[in-house]
Simulated assay, not measured.
Amino acid sequence: MFLVTEYGVCENLRKLEITGVSCRDVYAKLLHRYRHILGLWQPDIGPYGGLLNVVVDGLFIIGWMYLPPHDPHVDDPMRFKPLFRIHLMERKSATVECMYGHRGPHNGHIQVSVCLGSLRHHRRSGGRQEEFRTWLREEWGRTLEDIFHEHMQELILMKFIYTSQYDNCLTYRRIYLPPSHPDDLIRPGLFKGTYGSHGLEIVMLSFHGKHARVTKITGDPNIPAGQQTVEIDLMHRIQLPNVENLCNFNELSRIVLEAQEQVRQEQQRQEDRTEDGEGSGPPTEVREPENEGAAPLKEEPVQFVLPVGVSSRNENYPRTCRMCFYGTGLIAGHGFTSPERTPGVFILFDEDRFGFIWLELKSFSLYSRVQATFRNADAPSPQAFEEMLKNIQSLTS
């Protein structure tokens, strides 16, 4: 029963009797041994990144590479293909097989590596392992193994290295799904988004107090995976003009640049108060722009249309939206050169779709929720999720 409740094994375990492999072998040599690699991972492949989901599938552990749908069909389901599988060929040990390539399954190797970030600072100057273990027993009354297994998810930044005939050696870093709060604008998670000539990419929407962030899980030579592609200022809602005026790009540009200037002035006042020793103080009241002929600022859907001159990879975008916010988008030259944040507008269409108009690029990105369900992917704490974001972003900083 523990195989079903802990690992989701739905296979008829009586089939094991035919192969001569016991439940104990499956648990000890397969599921328990490789339990740390279950969940979501991001490969370290230059700027491109990716999404790997490692799951228990019957009596196998399989690593599935998740790919966006074909451009520009952002609402289509994700594509996926097997990268590797682990199973018990015999009772002695588990076998790792690479599923990638035209020659069929062949031998692979997985090495799990962890960084005990919270523990490494307690290591004595001599650095000898036995002294460290003795110190833990004396000071904490615990063994290193006890601490590691009880608090592993909160104390480590985990990665595993996967070696195969074709990939040579790839490093994968763990990804957590963002924590969800009742006051979030929509449910956070993974989305597919259009990025012009770069096609569809996978991003993660997360909420951080007064701001929301869209982080790239897959990337391109301009903006690599791990970078924060869009930031939304939830304190500055934008009231779009009615549809007739919205068709005019200059009108939209004026509204967004006014919001940008308001944000700049508030930041300057905040810095002045800090220099004067007044502390942070209460937030400045948000002033909604007064737009002639503007549609009412409501949460119920209002009509939406892209301004003339704004390019969109997908013309099948929603024609109504719930609300809009000022935001900034990250742009850069090839090789992530001269990166800068430029103004834009975040458009919330519904629970599963949002968009972003890049003012400087005169382009529109449409994002659609990834509907797949992922096990073993929740962050153990908000702090662990924040550390994960810093970890994947540091690879390209």
Rank of each mutant, 00 (worst) to 15 (best):
N376D: 15
S93C: 04
L157W: 04
M235G: 14
H181C: 01
S338N: 15
Y166T: 15
G20I: 12
Q303P: 12
G281L: 06
R213D: 03
A295H: 09
G327F: 04
G126N: 11
T215E: 10
N12W: 00
I202P: 10
R91E: 12
S164P: 11
R79I: 10
V55R: 06
L155Q: 08
R273K: 08
H109P: 09
I110N: 10
V256T: 05
T163E: 14
E275F: 15
R133N: 07
G277E: 06
G141F: 09
T396S: 14
L348I: 08
G108I: 12
E17V: 04
D57M: 09
K210E: 03
P296G: 13
N168R: 14
T163R: 15
K362V: 13
K210P: 01
E244R: 10
T171C: 09
R313S: 15
P224K: 05
V26W: 03
S164V: 11
G327T: 07
S280R: 12
I156W: 00
L200E: 00
I232M: 05
H109A: 14
R375V: 13
E139L: 12
E292I: 02
L348G: 03
R322W: 09
M388N: 08
I147E: 05
G279S: 02
G39A: 14
E261K: 15
G8C: 07
V243N: 11
N250I: 06
F364I: 07
E258R: 07
V55N: 03
P289V: 05
C23S: 00
T274D: 06
R369W: 03
Y172M: 14
D352W: 02
P69C: 11
E131V: 00
F364M: 11
V345L: 08
L177K: 14
E130F: 02
P188E: 01
P178V: 11
T194H: 07
V4H: 06
R341W: 13
Q270C: 08
P241V: 04
V263I: 12
S164M: 13
H211Y: 01
F84P: 02
L200N: 03
P221T: 06
I86T: 05
P178W: 01
F84S: 02
G344M: 13
G355Q: 00
N168V: 11
H121I: 14
I156E: 05
P182M: 06
D71R: 05
F84N: 02
H149P: 04
P224Q: 00
T194Q: 08
